[in-house]
């Protein structure tokens, strides 16, 4: 079965956003990072552990009546660097976006090091994690220089 037919397994949407190629099991975190919860009145469709040739398994999220922006998508780089986004208008793909990791991730996650100058969330300057290497992804805090524990990054999302 092709990816397309898997996609069709969940309802097609009229207007909104489809986020594909989310690592299996991360869909809920993705929604959380986008500030989307079940209290919205518009439908949200989640498909988890969908077989994927490229990723083995993946999650797919469809959000009706909301178009996510490039900067919102870039926030997802930390947990879903391969995510691809289709903006849907009138049942067809109007725009495609890919995650842009950039050189620095600002204001998305706090430094994991408990003795960092930014610790405690009272300091007003933004958390800044610099992309030290991409493969494997290594991030270092702009302030303290510590290499971030990528396993714990979800716990440190802002």
């Amino acid at each position: 079965m092709s990816t397309e037919s898997h996609m069709r397994r969940v309802t097609a949407i009229n207007n909104g956003t489809v986020i594909d190629h989310i690592p299996a099991g991360c869909a809920i975190t993705v929604l959380k990072m986008l500030g989307i919860d079940g209290r919205r009145s518009t439908p949200i469709t989640l498909a988890m552990n969908v077989p994927s040739k490229k990723m083995g398994g993946k999650d797919v999220v469809k959000i009706e009546d909301r178009e996510i922006t490039q900067s919102e998508l870039d926030r997802l780089a930390l947990i879903a660097p391969e995510a691809s986004v289709s903006i849907i208008r009138a049942y067809s793909v109007a725009e495609k976006l890919v995650v842009n990791l950039g050189v620095e991730i600002i204001g998305v996650a706090r430094c994991c090091f408990s003795n960092c100058a930014t610790w405690g969330d009272r300091e007003p300057l933004p958390h800044r994690l610099k992309v030290h290497s991409i493969e494997p992804l290594e991030l270092r805090c702009h302030y303290c220089g510590r290499s971030q524990d990528m396993e714990a990054i979800i716990d440190n999302l802002l």
Binding site: C111, F113, N115, C116, A117, T118, W119, E123, L125, C141, H142, Y143, C144, G145, R146
Partner: peptide, 14 residues
């Protein structure tokens, strides 16, 4: 001098 790591960079940015 500050007990927290990264404090000087933080100060420099401020």
């Amino acid at each position: 001098r500050h007990p927290r790591q990264g404090a000087a960079q933080y100060a420099s940015d401020s």
